[in-house]
């Protein structure tokens, strides 16, 4: 009976994951391996293709994503799909029209702002996923906030991994592939933002987790009882322990030949904290050096006094 409960928990979290996250690993890997036929992503590899990218996406059909059929159409207002709406005020990933861009210096900043819009939307998706973890909404509300504040960037980095390979990353819900070299060619410090995530993701992807493994791992990350400022640690640790058992069982069943996968996965949580610390420091540096930059209020809330 205990194992049956753990399997039921795994199924529940997998369903929540499918409901709230629009681009699954299975779909992303199909796109990256060219198995989607005519729907190959548009490749952005230089400034010219960056400009063409917006034009390209304007001509494409808006894919109907499963979870978005259930959510408000307004959700699309801040995501990459918005770019497909003719006459939209947003472009790629919510970017203001690239066609009438100003000085080249502003390109990076505008792209960064569009990434912020998508990130804020992703934080909302992760919040909904967290709320679906059994017991999460019964925790002290202040502790729920703390768990999200400290966990959400880690979750987003894990979710970015399936979208990446050694050569680049899918953006805009899988409709665009942006090359790693192009991201590296942006001016400093923008060129430094994605490289650590590529390095992490390439290694993380060798673990070959599937979407149902990912769902459990994300829940484990969210339920970390050692986040600073938690008021009532015990119930959080109890919830995490149950999810950890479910994850361990899941990995044994779905990856019987992968030795020590559970241990390897838990070790990734240490690497993640360092990546988030470095990321936040980079954002703080940007705030000082880029006078025109404004940080999204939700991201500001999350990053303030984080590390």
């Amino acid at each position: 009976p205990e194992a049956a409960d753990l399997r039921a928990l795994a199924r529940h979290l997998y369903e929540a994951y499918l409901k709230y996250f629009p681009l699954t690993k299975a779909k992303a890997r199909a796109i990256l391996s060219g198995k989607t036929g005519d729907n190959a992503p548009f490749v952005i590899h230089d400034m010219k293709s960056l400009m063409e990218g917006e034009q390209f996406i304007n001509c494409r059909q808006i894919p109907i994503l499963e979870h978005q059929q259930q959510t408000s159409a307004l959700t699309l207002g801040h995501g990459g799909i918005t770019a497909a709406h003719p006459g939209s005020e947003y472009g790629i990933m919510g970017m203001t029209s690239i066609g009438d861009q100003g000085p080249t210096d502003a390109v990076e900043l505008r792209f960064f702002q569009s990434c912020q819009s998508r990130s804020a939307e992703a934080v909302r998706e992760v919040t909904e996923f967290a709320k679906s973890i059994p017991g999460f909404i019964n925790l002290d509300l202040n502790d729920q906030v703390t768990l999200l504040k400290y966990g959400v960037i880690e979750v987003l980095i894990i979710m970015m991994s399936p979208l990446m390979n050694k050569d680049g990353t899918l953006i805009s819900y899988g409709q665009i592939f942006m090359t790693r070299e192009f991201l590296k060619s942006l001016r400093k410090p923008f060129c430094q933002m994605m490289e650590p995530k590529f390095e992490f993701s390439v290694k993380f992807n060798t673990l070959e987790l599937d979407d149902s493994d990912m769902a459990l791992f994300l829940a484990v990350i969210i339920l970390s009882g050692d986040r600073p400022g938690l008021l009532n640690v015990k119930p959080i640790e109890q919830l995490q322990e149950t999810v950890l058992h479910s994850l361990e069982l899941q990995l044994k069943l779905s990856h019987p030949d992968s030795l020590q996968l559970f241990a390897k996965l838990l070790q990734k949580m240490t690497d993640l904290r360092q990546i988030v610390t470095d990321h936040v420091h980079l954002i703080q540096l940007l705030k000082k050096t880029e006078v025109d930059m404004c940080l999204h209020p939700l991201l500001q809330e999350i990053m303030k006094d984080l590390y």
């Binding site: 959700t75 919040t127 504040k149 939700l298 809330e301």
Partner: peptide, 20 residues
């Protein structure tokens, strides 16, 4: 609570996507 107003709202379902 004021420091994390939007997160509180998201958790309590009082923020619509458009507010983001």
């Amino acid at each position: 609570k004021e420091k994390h107003k939007i997160l509180h709202q998201l958790l309590q379902n009082s923020t619509s996507p458009v507010d983001l």
